[in-house]
């Protein structure tokens, strides 16, 4: 199955990529191609030109700079899932990536930049990035910009990215303490995408403490954009985590949500998605809590 014809350009630097995007009428970025190529085969996208950015070394690598973790836009799912630095400093990200569909063949080449630029509600990354407080770094003719992920994604498969911009990296703030992550997901069986995916980013003082210093929990797949679960977070933050409190917090998950914005389509009805929320929130928090012992309140 062919795609339509297009011209192919290999960018040597971010500036060169932006230049190439500016000089073509309808150009798209080619990174891993795992989202793009199937869409082009189906003629859902028919760009005149593709700008291959995979030779740009500055878009690679995962490193820590002072109080920020920088994930290069070309980092593959495989590199992120295996990153010791991320497991330590922002564990919700690698936990989530392990759930992305497609198998190791896709994880070997698909990139975080491509995934978030696609902004598909079922693609798992958005909730995790939101829970971790991430900024999307984009470059374009006007230079570099940092956009919080909550502003970057406008709706299903829609972002603020202009046609002449590309995602160059993702930045995640470093928090001091014992940071734990979890991700629980109900898959749509055919595609493997999330019907509901819950990302949990919890902060404790140390690996024995059960006092939740901060809780950031976000769900993707439920609405057009990933959303934070404010009511659940409020029930946990600043409190001793007990089994009862965990269940009560999960039970409140939908209370702060606009239920009229819940996706209702052939993949899953809105009612079904809402039913899945509470158990997935529980599972996700439990995964983040890990081995620590939760004592009942007396």
């Amino acid at each position: 199955m062919h795609t339509e014809q297009f011209s192919y350009h290999r960018a040597e630097s971010v500036e060169h990529a932006v230049e190439l995007l500016e000089t073509s009428d309808d150009a798209r970025i080619l990174a891993g191609g795992q989202g793009l190529i199937p869409l082009m085969k189906k003629r859902e996208l028919t760009p005149d030109a593709l700008v291959d950015i995979t030779q740009i070394d500055e878009l690679r690598g995962i490193e820590r700079t002072d109080d920020t973790i920088r994930i290069g836009g070309l980092s593959t799912h495989r590199e992120i899932a295996d990153s010791a630095l991320l497991k330590e400093t922002a564990p919700v990200i690698p936990r989530t990536v392990a759930h992305i569909t497609g198998g190791q063949q896709v994880h070997n080449v698909a990139t975080i930049g491509g995934n978030i630029a696609r902004a598909h509600p079922g693609y798992d990354y958005e909730g995790a990035l939101l829970s971790a407080g991430s900024q999307i770094v984009v470059s374009g003719p006007a230079g570099k910009q940092r956009v919080p992920v909550s502003e970057f994604v406008r709706g299903p498969c829609s972002t603020t990215l202009a046609e002449t911009q590309l995602v160059t990296s993702i930045e995640i703030p470093v928090l001091s303490g014992d940071r734990r992550g979890g991700y629980a997901k109900k898959k749509e069986p055919a595609s493997g995408n999330a019907i509901v995916g819950v990302a949990t980013d919890l902060l404790f003082d140390d690996d024995q403490s059960t006092l939740v210093k901060s809780a950031r929990i976000a769900v993707n797949g439920l609405q057009g954009c990933a959303v934070r679960l404010d009511a659940t977070e409020n029930k946990l933050e600043g409190k001793q985590l007990t089994p009862d409190r965990l269940e009560a917090a999960a039970g409140d998950a939908s209370s702060s949500l606009d239920s009229s914005a819940v996706l209702d389509n052939k993949k899953a009805s809105a009612e079904y998605r809402l039913c899945l929320l509470e158990p997935q929130v529980q599972k996700s928090i439990r995964q983040a809590v890990g081995e620590r012992t939760l004592y009942s309140q007396t």
């Binding site: 191609g33 896709v106 080449v109």
Partner: peptide, 10 residues
Amino acid sequence: VKSCTRFTVQ
């Protein structure tokens, strides 16, 4: 890798 989802130029 899945060779149906790679362009040869890649």
